[in-house]
Design a binder for these strands. Structure first.
Length: 459
RNA sequence: GGCCGAGUGGCAGAGUGGCCAUGCAGCGGAUUGCAAAUCCGCGUACGUCGGUUCGAUUCCGGCCUCGGCCUCCA
């Protein structure tokens, strides 16, 4: 089986073949750390985490870098507004982002480089661009000269004339061409800055990714990913400067972009204000349910986020964990994920299809009559879940978390269950049902099983 | 205006030229003291108008609607 991925550059699905199977390289644009990440920001982290898991299962070494943008004008604005150094802000939100993503089951990438740790490398790359004629210095700025790169526009499929027509931004006077973009810009004394051959300044938006890719992954990487809105201008510009800095070497062999998460069909974005942060969602919902909801739509499709989306995800996971709970005492036969699950993911990360296969495994586990069958299906289910980053908890922990966060008085529930058991033994079913109603009023459902009565928090 | 996407059953959401997605919800049955859970069964779904075809939700064209990028944005 081979992995097929959709390449934004060619707009087709292509077989993925790494340049060097001994060292697969992937770079995904990470967050600008000046605020809480919203659930839309989490989508690429989760999606590319699945890809990372898939690649790791197949190749001996996968180097996955996801950066933190910790120098940026929005950070500067927050720094001024709060009267604290930018590092106070970026450190805080980097830690929060890490914790939030961990709660979503996102594995730490191999590398998490920060922009501010790579200023010399950025300067070096800018110097290379100046040297080979693709950039120029003007009024303390250094700009990339877009017309110097014939391939400009290939990723976003647009040509310069059209862009000039549609331009909504005033063209800075020091630009040779309206499309030229900033590699380095001067900083006033009140702004963060670094000494450079062009005076004290700070990097433009795009150069950090190219410099960090060059530093950690090499001139050519296998996969470059990010959100759909990064195609233009960010990735188009990265592609231009990266290619030119390396005298025409391929910058990224495969470009992947996830679709948007929407609220009421409109893109979730900080500027629109229609956001819900991962942080606040985690207060009421297990991270695993959020992850399941994110993966319930194909990564290139839009995904409309609502309470209903999350509720359905949680209910579906409840069912899977209930199946696993039934076989807690049975040791799973260690197993690879079933071919059907792998085949689904191999087809451009078709996570909804993979989840349908997981549902089939849950059913098979529930149907299984013999211990060997149960052990086998349990192993397959857990292995399939591992690829998606779900179903790795102990069922008791999954249901226990729901109990804990519900605020239900567990001791009282247990006491009532004991009382009901006594009534049932006495065949006083009216009293037993009355007690159950009392328990139900607490928001708790009880289940009588062969091995005793269990309870769970109702939805 | 330019360039891109998308419209699937009550909801979410895959996919395919002719046969089953799947999950959630709902209905019926089994089971249960009654429930819950589980299992079994159940829905003439593919925006619209044409075209190609023996046959289209799936291919082609027009139209309508919605969204995205062109500015910071995952």
């Amino acid at each position: 089986m081979s992995l097929i991925l959709y390449n934004t550059l060619t707009r087709t699905k292509e077989a993925f073949t790494p340049a060097d199977p001994a060292r697969v390289t992937m770079y995904v644009c990470g967050p600008t750390v000046y605020n809480y990440a919203h659930i839309g920001n989490a989508r690429p982290a989760v999606v590319f985490d699945v890809l990372f898991r898939l690649l790791t299962a197949r190749y001996p070494k996968v180097v996955y870098a996801r950066n933190y943008t910790d120098v940026d004008d929005k950070i500067n604005a927050a720094s001024k507004a709060q009267g604290v150094p930018i590092k106070a802000i970026t450190d805080k939100f980097t830690a929060i982002y890490r914790a939030d993503m961990a709660a979503l089951g996102v594995l730490p990438p191999t590398l998490e480089p920060c922009a501010t740790d790579h200023i010399p490398q950025m300067i070096g790359m800018i110097e290379a661009l100046l040297k080979n004629g693709h950039a120029y210095a003007a009024e303390g700025h250094v700009l990339f000269n877009v017309p110097s790169f014939a391939g400009y526009g290939q990723l976003s499929r647009r040509n310069l004339d059209e862009m000039i027509d549609g331009a909504r931004v005033e063209v800075a006077p020091y630009k040779k061409d309206p499309a030229d973009f900033v590699l380095w810009k001067p900083s006033t004394p009140d702004l963060p800055g670094w000494d450079s051959p062009w005076g004290r300044g700070r990097p433009g938006w795009h150069i950090e990714c190219s410099a960090m890719i060059e530093t950690h992954l090499g001139e050519t990487i296998d996969i470059h990913g990010g959100g759909h809105d990064l195609i233009f201008p960010h990735h188009e510009n990265e592609l231009a400067q990266g290619t030119c800095a390396h005298n025409g070497a391929t910058y990224a062999r495969m470009w992947m972009h996830n679709g948007f998460l929407t609220m009421d069909k409109a893109k979730m974005s900080k500027s629109l204000g229609n956001i819900v942060t991962v942080h606040e969602l985690l207060e009421s919902t297990p991270g695993e349910a959020l992850r399941w909801a994110i993966l319930s739509a194909h990564y290139r499709q839009p995904l409309d986020w609502s309470d209903e989306t999350v509720a359905q995800a949680k209910t579906t996971l409840d069912r899977a964990y209930r199946a696993l709970e039934q076989v807690t005492a049975i040791t799973a036969i260690p197993n690879a994920a079933p071919d059907a699950v792998i085949a689904a993911l191999d087809d451009d990360l078709n996570t909804p299809k993979a989840m349908a296969e997981i549902a089939a495994l849950v059913k098979a586990l529930n149907q299984a009559a013999t211990t060997p069958d149960k052990a086998r299906f349990k192993g397959q289910l857990v292995a399939a879940g591992r690829l998606l980053g779900v179903l790795q908890q102990d069922p008791t922990a999954w249901f226990g978390a729901a109990k804990a966060s519900s605020g239900v008085d567990a001791a009282e529930v247990e006491r009532l269950i004991a009382a009901r058991l006594a009534a049932r033994k006495a065949r006083d079913f009216r009293e037993a049902d009355r007690i159950r109603d009392t328990i139900a009023a607490m928001g708790v459902l009880i289940e009588d099983r062969a091995d005793g009565t269990t309870w769970r928090v109702a939805e």
